[in-house]
Each structure stands twice: as C-alpha cells, then as structure tokens.
C-alpha cells in the first residue's frame, strides 16, 4: 500500500488537507509542514514530553504518532491556546508564577495541564505533580509550574462561578 497518503485533520480549529509521507511523525508534520514550531522535540522517543499535544482533547506524544494516524482528529497545539493574543488563564498563570525559564518544555507542559484542568478542575498539588511526571523541565525545578497550575485552576473555577 501507500508510502504517501492524503491526510485530513483539524489543527487548532483549521481544517487541513495534505498529502504526506506515511513515515512522517505528527510532530514533524506540525513543525515542518505547518510551520507550527511551538511543538518541540526533545527525545523523539516518548520520554521528555516536550512534543505533547492534545489529540481529540487527550494528551499524546506527537513524536510517537504518525501524522496519518491523526486523520480525522482534532489536534491542538500551543499555538491554538491564546485567542487574538489573549493568553488563557493557564498561560497567564505561567507568566505570573514563573512557570517557565527557557520555555522549551512549556508547550508540552501546557498541553498536559490543559487536560489535567479539564479532567480534575480542583487538583491537589500531588495531582499536579503526578501529571507533570510525564514532562521533563530542566530549568524551573517544577515549583513555579506547580504554583501556576494551582493558581490557574483557582482562576478558572472562580471565573466559571462568576459567570
């Protein structure tokens, strides 16, 4: 069968149709074909979490998926989070709580925490650390990330309550 295939998916809400080599990973598709270089590649074997994106609302290592496997899926990357330059409460909390230093791990961390906050709106610190175990950060020592996640959870809950 094919070594190239037609791929149809939605990325950050935009419908995309491309013919791609079947061996292309989802990460390389996002970065090289769509120029969405916010998704980073650290290890390319599933360990570091830098490439983590949301596929149909669930986190996945984009280095461990073929692009053609995302056929029909809705993919969200860090580029799809802020709307018209307005940061999400999670991103805003990263700014306020020193949730990043070099920023290499951040897009993957944000994907993980987005799923966490949707799954557990009121996470404990232990929950946050458990979920973060799948994302390696070499700069922050994690404390700023944990603080940002907890603050964002609170902000989102209060925002929802205030509506």
């Amino acid at each position: 069968m094919a070594e190239r295939m037609l791929l149809m998916l939605s990325v950050n809400g935009t419908e995309i149709t491309r013919e791609v080599p079947v061996r292309l990973t989802l990460a390389d598709f996002l970065r090289h074909e769509l120029a969405l270089t916010g998704t980073h590649l650290g290890c390319e074997h599933g360990v570091c979490g830098a490439c983590t994106v949301l596929v149909d609302g669930r986190t996945a290592r984009s280095c461990l998926m073929l692009a053609v496997q995302a056929d029909g899926a809705a993919v969200q990357t860090v580029e799809g989070m802020a709307v018209d330059g307005k940061l999400t409460p999670l991103q805003q909390a990263f700014v306020e709580h020193h949730g990043l230093q070099c920023g290499f791990c951040t897009p993957g961390v944000l994907a993980t925490l987005t799923e966490l906050l949707e799954t557990i709106p009121d996470p404990s610190e232990a929950d946050v650390r458990e979920w973060l175990s799948g994302n390696i950060c070499r700069c922050t020592g994690y404390q700023g990330i944990v603080d940002a996640a907890l603050a964002a959870a609170k902000a989102i809950r209060e925002g929802a309550a205030g509506e």
């Binding site: 669930r58 986190t59 996945a60 461990l64 979920w131």
Partner: peptide, 9 residues
C-alpha cells in the same frame, strides 16, 4: 504504567 500522556495512547 508510564504517564497519563502515554497511557492515553
């Protein structure tokens, strides 16, 4: 077993 991100797949 791994992490949420790997168990999802």
């Amino acid at each position: 077993v791994g992490h949420v991100q790997t168990r999802n797949r």
